[in-house]
Simulated assay, not measured.
Amino acid sequence: MGIIEWLVLISTISTLSFSWAVYLINLHNSKNLPEKIKEDEERLIQLMGRVRIFVDSKIEILEVKMKELNDLISQVNDLYSKLVLEVSEYQKNIKTNSKISYEEKKEVEANSENFEKTLEETIEKRETKKTEMTREEQIIELYNQGIEEAEIAKKFGMGIGEVRLIIDLFHRTKSK
């Protein structure tokens, strides 16, 4: 045999040895792969469960806070109505009693200014609340029309998570 034949024989044996080694390594790795995938899937499922529990607890807290806020708003409305009645009665008394001292007039003017400021602030708060409710209603309406959450979020300049939260809260309150 010549040198070329020996080189061909040695290169063939080397190639077969290398191929066999690669095959054995891949065979060993493929046996461990399904177990690792199952472990990763179990960890992922556990994490998803924890996240779901966390999100549900936060949503419950948010619902409680929203109920408290609605209660406070109704209390403020009641107080506002009482205040308006008292101010109107007070103004009637002022008109009937034309002989009011200078100090009492100053006090009435100061109270009127405070009342006007309070009234303006209350009106602004109501308008802000109405705007927010309108936006939530618009989000629900668009969602019911079949528009995707991402498009709704872009339209209102909000995050997708915020849109999902509003939709989820709407469905929860609707189902109760």
Rank of each mutant, 00 (worst) to 15 (best):
L24D: 15
S101N: 13
E132R: 06
E68F: 06
I59W: 10
I53H: 05
V84G: 10
N77G: 07
E116K: 13
K125F: 09
N29Q: 15
K99H: 00
L83R: 11
E86M: 05
E63P: 01
R43K: 14
T131C: 03
L83Q: 04
E124A: 02
L79R: 05
S98E: 03
E41R: 07
Y23C: 03
M133A: 05
E148K: 06
Q145E: 00
K129A: 11
I53D: 07
V55R: 07
D71I: 05
E151A: 06
Y23R: 03
S74M: 13
E132N: 05
S30C: 11
V87T: 15
Y143T: 00
S57A: 09
E124S: 02
P34L: 09
K106C: 08
Q91T: 07
L142I: 05
S19M: 14
Y102G: 09
P34I: 10
M66T: 02
K129S: 03
K130C: 01
Q75M: 11
R50N: 08
R126K: 10
V84D: 03
D71C: 01
M66V: 04
L24P: 10
I25D: 15
I37M: 10
I123M: 09
K99D: 07
V76L: 01
L119D: 13
I73T: 09
K129T: 02
W20A: 13
E137W: 03
E109N: 04
V22P: 14
S74E: 15
L44F: 15
G49L: 00
L44W: 12
E151K: 02
E132W: 01
L85A: 08
I147V: 13
N29C: 14
V64H: 08
Y80W: 13
P34H: 14
V51T: 07
E149L: 11
E63W: 06
I25L: 10
E116T: 09
N114T: 02
N144D: 13
Q75H: 11
Y102V: 13
L62M: 08
L62A: 08
I94S: 01
E89P: 04
V51L: 15
K125H: 03
T96S: 12
E121Q: 08
F54I: 05
E124F: 00
T122F: 14
E141P: 09
M48S: 12
L62D: 05
A21S: 14
E151D: 14
K129H: 04
Y143V: 03
E107N: 11
S88P: 00
K92L: 05
R135Q: 02
L142V: 02
E149Y: 12
H28Y: 10
H28W: 13
F115C: 07
T131F: 03
V51I: 12
E136Q: 08
K65S: 02
I53Q: 08
V108I: 08
E120M: 07
K105N: 10
H28T: 11
M66D: 06
L79N: 14
A150Q: 10
I61D: 05
K58Q: 02
Q46T: 03
E113D: 14
T122N: 00
Y90N: 11
L24R: 04
A110N: 06
E42H: 07
I45Y: 04
R52F: 00
V76C: 00
L142F: 05
P34N: 11
V84R: 15
E35R: 15
T134D: 06
R52K: 15
V76H: 02
A110Y: 02
E35Q: 14
